[in-house]
Design a protein around this nucleic acid. Structure first.
Length: 198
DNA sequence: CGGGTTTGACCAGCGC
DNA sequence: GCGCTGGTCAAACCCG
């Protein structure tokens, strides 16, 4: 991942700069924590306990994944288990990214069209967890959205899988709207944009 | 009428 | 083996 790269057109939060500014009022992306787990073993984690936003990416299935680290650290109900693993084997479940964001609204408009298919109350969280699938034909990307059980001001959005299509609101966002000195902020979008192809 | 949401039921994995 | 829990399904419902 290279923060200096031009952003991929595959992902956009919004359709224009004004919208970006407006969404930045709703999502607090400052001081975000960013971590990448490659194969579950070489995850890099930069901890900032006061971070209003947390991103964790990684391939599911690794026993030492960043997901696991986050889960242990924050005791959230974020599901990072490797369901389906057996005897050390890992089952291909696709790329996953978790974003913990202090937000006034529950569902981040990430440019893709989602269809809700489930809602469930989970342990250690009084708030319901919502399940979404990408409504694009043939795209199996899923996301889970839930309020942090410990701090309802935070929303945990977990993306699972990779889109095999471009965002319906296929619009390039401008680097201008981001503070280039804030590498982490830029990385937030980069991490989501760089989903590998299905 | 088509597409999205709601919600109870069902299933599979995991821990005890 | 059993109960708990998370994830998914699908029928009913809602809305534009």
């Amino acid at each position: 991942m290279n923060p200096s790269q031009s952003p991929s057109p595959n992902f956009t939060f919004l359709s224009d700069e004004n919208s970006i500014y407006s969404v930045m009022d709703n999502y607090d992306f400052s001081n975000l924590m960013f971590s990448v787990g490659e194969g579950g073993s070489n995850g890099l984690i930069q901890e900032e306990t006061s971070s209003p936003t947390t991103i964790v990416t990684g391939e599911s299935g690794g026993s030492g994944s960043a997901f696991t680290t986050l889960r242990k650290k924050e005791s959230t109900s974020l599901d990072c288990k490797n369901r389906g693993s057996k005897d050390g084997e890992t089952k291909e479940m696709g790329h996953r990214v978790a974003i913990r964001t202090r937000s006034k609204i529950d569902v981040m408009d990430d440019g893709y069209k989602w269809r809700k298919y489930g809602k469930k109350s989970v342990k250690n969280n009084t708030n319901k967890r919502n399940y979404y699938k990408c409504s694009s034909e043939g795209c199996m990307v899923k996301k889970r959205v839930e309020r942090d059980g410990e701090n309802a001001a935070y929303v945990i959005t977990t993306y699972e899988g990779v889109h095999n299509h471009e965002s319906p609101s296929h619009v390039y966002y401008s680097d201008m709207v981001f503070d280039h000195d804030n590498w982490k902020q830029h990385s937030l979008l980069q991490s989501i944009q760089t989903f590998p192809p299905c």
